[in-house]
Amino acid sequence: MNFQTVGEPVRGLLEKAEFSLGDLPALVSPAAVEFLPQLVEIAKNKTLRQFGRTIKMYVPLYLSSFCENNCAYCNFNQQNSTARKRLTLDEARQEADLLYGFGFRHILLVAGEDRVLITLDYLSALIKKLKEKFSSVSIEVAPQSTQGYQQLAAAGLDGLTIYQETYDRQVYQSMHAKGRKNDFDYRLQTPERGGEANLREIGIGFLLGLADWRLEAISLAQHADFLIKRYWRSQLSISFPRIQKIEANFIPPYFVSDQDFIQLLVALRLVFPHVDLTLSTRESQNFRDQLIGIGITRMSAASSTVPGGYSNPQKFGGQFKVSDGRSADQVAAAISGTGYDPVFKDWESI
């Protein structure tokens, strides 16, 4: 695609009240950078109207750093000689209790592709237990079958997060050369299986830095639009984490600047005014604070990416390096300071 040809359409976009999928290429184009300040204002207004002055809070709970995949960019890559840890059900519950004490009511269970620990029975038992206290429980673990998601939904699972990592097939193959994750299509169809299981929330996304983010954004938007139309009962959320420097010493082939990040955020907000846009602690404290109000509607806080890391804080062995190391209270205070309400509970476990 020749992005240089879309300069004029971009100027026209500033007059629009509603944006459609077809506007996305122009919104993410280099030609749109010139209009970014105005587009940010439109995004702010759209976010305010749909979500009000609120930011929903969640926290990840890492269950296992064992992984049979070889994702080039990830510290859990099975070829890395990092220390590994699996949480027993009791250990996971203890970690969750700490997170409950911090104020969190929405929890995201995360694990590497670890077929030894992360079975449907383990997840079902944990979800059932956690739903006694937490308002919602979501998972970010290896892709499951539709029946698997149905079983987990019956145990109380509310949401599924599964990033495609990259929508570029060639890049995907090179980044995931071995392991079950090598199957691009099975991963791509995972949100649909979650949708078939009628999960309340489905989160998709890609990693910024693996391929040209502008092209990735167009693919992601097509994916999002398809899911919204087919699984219309599920709330869609989108995330686009920037790869940080990790212990695996992976250097992302594409540099993504703060401005690029904001342009992507704004473009997605304009085209999908009702979708949750999620921000993790991969981003720095200052940058996260600046993004409040622009389009982000969900943030994690106080995250540890090490299994057991809440009970035993440690610097090494995490999936990625946390850039914003503030406590839940500190992040909540920063959100309040910008005139927004940090919402820790946004669903009732029923």
Binding site: G52, R53, T54, S135, Y340, K345, D346, E348
Partner: peptide, 30 residues
């Protein structure tokens, strides 16, 4: 919903002299 703080919400309810106020159960810690 959608207020930046509970304090502002309360002040708005007072200014409106409202006698019926809806609260989303999803946001309430029962």
């Amino acid at each position: 919903g959608k207020f930046g703080s509970h304090k502002i919400m309360r002040a708005a309810v007072d200014a409106a002299e409202a006698e019926i106020v809806t609260v989303a159960l999803r946001r309430v810690d029962l």
